[in-house]
Design a protein around this nucleic acid. Structure first.
Length: 756
DNA sequence: GCTACACCGGTTTTT
DNA sequence: CCGGTGTAGC
């Protein structure tokens, strides 16, 4: 293999080391020509294969800028770039086209979009903006948002777009009544985006595809890329696959890498069938399977395989590893979500104490973001550092979005979404009435809301021709509008010559934004944290100080729209336990993984239980989670769980039942604490005291065999003395003063105390 | 026009 | 439990 390769590049020194790749990996890396399909199981060195392949291609003589590699997330793109740099150095690697579909589309549209009427300086509307636009559309069309949920309508529109359906086709198709409503909303929606010179995420892809309809553009790009590589191919949508084909049409060198078992984004229009279509469309494609796992122990893989094996319609594949043995995955039934969290904290604490674990080695994986709270509380209590990934994204926070809206107005005064958002933030006496008047006026006279505001304020009347009657707003509102318009104008002027961070600071000062935050916040802590977010935003903008002021604004807004990921912020403790959703965890690995909430209604999630396809996806999600673990995997579920303010009992996840008993190490609470009758908790945080009410007939003190003054020892807390005992239902609460860790209250049945 | 408060419904996942 | 929306009273 190596010899053959050297022949190809006879005069070139071979610097890419392929020796440490296995045979399948090497085959994928050194595939020379034509379509290539790589099926890459979890931990099989997928990223390594892609980066090595790119490096190898470059070494074979392909210029870096003729290689296009598409990833699913920005994080993956970044990682790939870093690894590529270490292989071939920064100079070569910067020239490789590497990014998400959206990122690459933006790049193409910025340079050639005008060919198809895409405004050069288009802005990108994120989902929050989109919702706003849909709401406006509903208002215009006098459709009751209660009857037709904006969310659902937007979902319908977006799905249609991702499938490549054009609005005209959608309207023409005889769909349901709901679809007809969606079609009408879509029209208004499109109009408003056009008015704002905005593209939504779907448009970025669609319009780029349109771009390739233009003969000259297509030809230019056909000659442009010698190789196109698509990562996470199982998560591509119809439109994304079409893009990949368009980009590789010239060379025919399309490499797709994916794993059907890890397809977890169908709700985002990912179509797993693309893998089949690829094979159908490229009969001559070479297929390589990577089934060697370099991440997990055999014990973990066995359990994970057991889960994925039960997926229907699945081509059987099995991951194998040479990895050293490790402990069996541990299955633990906790009593409640806080107990579940406690188990995690205790384990981490133990590992930290004996030095077998660093905080960053551990990750807690959950299905829904809401589950992170109980974990956080417990970690805080134990003083264990953690970092929460995603959750409420930084750029989704109200105060951050307010300031972004200000910045967007500087860029495009006509942006109605941004205008409506901040015209009265902080409140400056411009209410619903005034806004209505402005909206009507701007509709009647084909002017933007900003122009309406200026006219109402008595500014710029001449520019309107002087004969238009200004919008009839109150004297007070007019004064406020004047203030607002001037604020924006000044800031815009400032933005053309000063750094972004300074522009933001002036806006904050002039609007007394901080005082407004304090007034808005219920608690001082909230005000503080929101102000911190504002400061953080300023810090982010400081990264743009190198760029010329005008261009900085553009670049910043674009990045914000495309990189809405908390991960990109420098913040957060460097060595911390990771709290992350199962979805976001894809592509990551951790020595120790805790999967929580392995219960029916949570995983599989309630909303996915009716549909067999969605159920399959939940199973794959479970599989993805399990295969993140390198050496230790803890599978947790709780007997009782408070969710959305209510408390209930969920049976263990069906996926757990698919793992043979002998592949697991059971660690269960020793006795049932309450009857089957589960009553709602009074408090969100379940305290042991609450359990008193559960038993109608309190029984005598349980036979825990302990009394005050007894010396006991505990797995984690060590040695201590019992200082109090209390009957709780059929259990006992034992208060122990531990030598190292102080006083703790423990449940006898859970704590596993032994007499010392 | 603003604020406080009651009510309702629900996001599972994200470029 | 959360946040968004609607209403009453200032």
């Amino acid at each position: 293999m190596l010899a053959a390769m050297s022949d190809v590049s006879a005069e070139r020194a071979v610097t890419i080391d392929l020796d440490h790749l296995n045979e399948a990996q090497r085959a994928a890396v050194t595939h020379l020509h034509g379509p290539l399909l790589v099926i890459a199981g979890p931990g099989s060195g997928k990223t390594r294969v892609i980066t090595h392949r790119i490096a190898w291609l470059i070494e074979q003589g392909t210029p870096p800028w003729r290689i296009l590699a598409v990833t699913f997330t920005n994080r993956a793109a970044r990682e790939m770039r870093t690894r590529l740099e270490s292989l071939i150095g920064p100079e070569q690697s910067t020239d490789v086209w590497l990014g998400t579909f959206h990122r690459i589309c933006v790049r193409m549209l910025r340079s050639q979009g005008q060919e198809i009427g895409v405004p050069r300086n288009f802005v990108i509307f994120d989902s929050d903006d989109q919702m706003q636009v849909v709401r406006n559309a509903l208002k215009d069309l006098r459709i009751d948002p209660k009857q037709y949920a904006p969310r659902a309508l937007l979902g319908r529109i977006s799905r249609a777009k991702s499938e490549g359906t054009r609005r005209e086709e959608f309207v023409a198709a005889t769909g349901s009544y709901f679809d007809e409503i969606a079609a009408r909303v879509w029209e208004r929606y499109a109009d408003q985006l056009a008015e704002s010179a905005a593209l939504d995420f779907d448009d970025l892809l669609l319009r780029t595809l349109d771009l390739f309809e233009v003969e000259s553009v297509r030809r230019a790009y056909e000659e442009r890329f010698d190789h196109v590589l698509v990562d996470e191919f199982q998560d591509t949508s119809t439109i994304q696959y079409q893009l990949a084909r368009a980009w590789s049409a010239g060379s025919g060198n399309l490499t797709v890498v994916g794993d059907p078992d890890q397809s977890i984004y169908s709700w985002r229009s990912a179509d797993i069938r693309n893998l089949n279509y690829f094979v159908r469309d490229h009969r001559e494609a070479t297929e390589v399977q990577l089934n060697n796992n370099y991440r997990s122990t055999q014990q973990i893989l066995d359990a994970a395989n057991a889960v994925i094996d039960r997926a229907s319609n699945r081509i059987k594949r099995r991951l194998v590893t040479d990895n050293r043995d490790g402990p069996l995955p541990r299955l633990h039934e906790a009593y409640s979500e806080s107990d579940e969290a406690e188990y995690i904290s205790s384990h981490v604490e133990l590992g930290l104490r004996d030095g077998s674990l660093r905080p960053s080695d551990a990750a807690v994986l959950y299905r829904t973001n809401a589950q992170s709270r109980a974990i956080e509380e417990s970690l805080v209590q134990h003083g264990i550092p953690y970092r929460l990934v995603g959750a409420t994204r930084f750029y989704d926070r109200r105060e951050v979005r307010d300031l972004l809206a200000y910045l967007r107005l500087l860029r495009n005064a006509a942006d109605p979404v941004a205008f409506t958002r901040v015209v009265n933030v902080p409140t400056r006496g411009i209410g619903a009435k005034t806004l209505d008047v402005l909206t009507e006026w701007s509709a009647d006279h084909a002017r933007s809301a900003s122009q309406a505001a200026a006219a109402a304020a008595g500014i710029d009347a001449d520019a309107l021709g002087g004969y238009l009657a200004p919008p009839p707003v109150s004297r007070r509102a007019a004064a406020s509008l004047k203030e607002f318009v001037e604020l924006i104008d000044e800031a815009r002027e400032q933005a053309s010559r000063e750094p972004l961070s300074d522009v933001l600071r002036s806006i904050l000062v002039k609007t007394r934004y901080r005082e407004w935050l304090v007034r808005q916040s219920d608690t001082e802590t909230e005000a503080e944290s929101r102000w911190e977010n504002v400061q953080e935003l300023i810090t982010v903008t400081e990264n743009y100080s190198e760029i010329a002021p005008g261009a900085a604004l553009d670049a910043f807004l674009e990045d914000v729209a495309l990189v809405a990921d908390v991960d990109d912020l420098p913040d957060g403790p460097p060595d911390a336990v990771t709290l992350i959703t199962l979805h976001q965890a894809k592509g990551l690995e951790f020595p120790v993984v805790f999967m929580v909430g392995l219960e029916e209604y949570l995983l599989p999630h309630q909303l996915s239980m009716d549909d067999p396809n969605q159920l399959q996806e939940e199973r794959r999600l479970c599989y993805v989670g399990m295969t993140r673990a390198m050496r230790e995997l803890h599978l947790l579920h709780a007997f009782r769980r408070a969710y959305q303010g209510r408390s209930g009992h969920n049976p263990p996840s069906r996926f757990l039942a698919d793992i043979p008993e002998e592949l697991l190490q059971r660690h269960q609470r020793q006795q049932a604490r309450v009857g089957d009758d589960v009553r709602p908790a009074r408090n969100r945080t379940v305290r042991w005291d609450d359990f008193d009410s559960f038993d109608a007939e309190p029984v005598a003190a349980p036979s825990v065999g302990l009394k005050e003054g007894d010396e006991v020892s505990h797995e984690i807390f060590g040695h201590g003395v019992v200082i109090a005992l209390r009957t709780i239902g059929r259990d006992a609460e034992v208060t122990v003063r531990f030598a190292d860790t102080g006083v703790k209250r423990l449940l006898a049945s859970m704590a596993n105390l032994t007499r010392a």
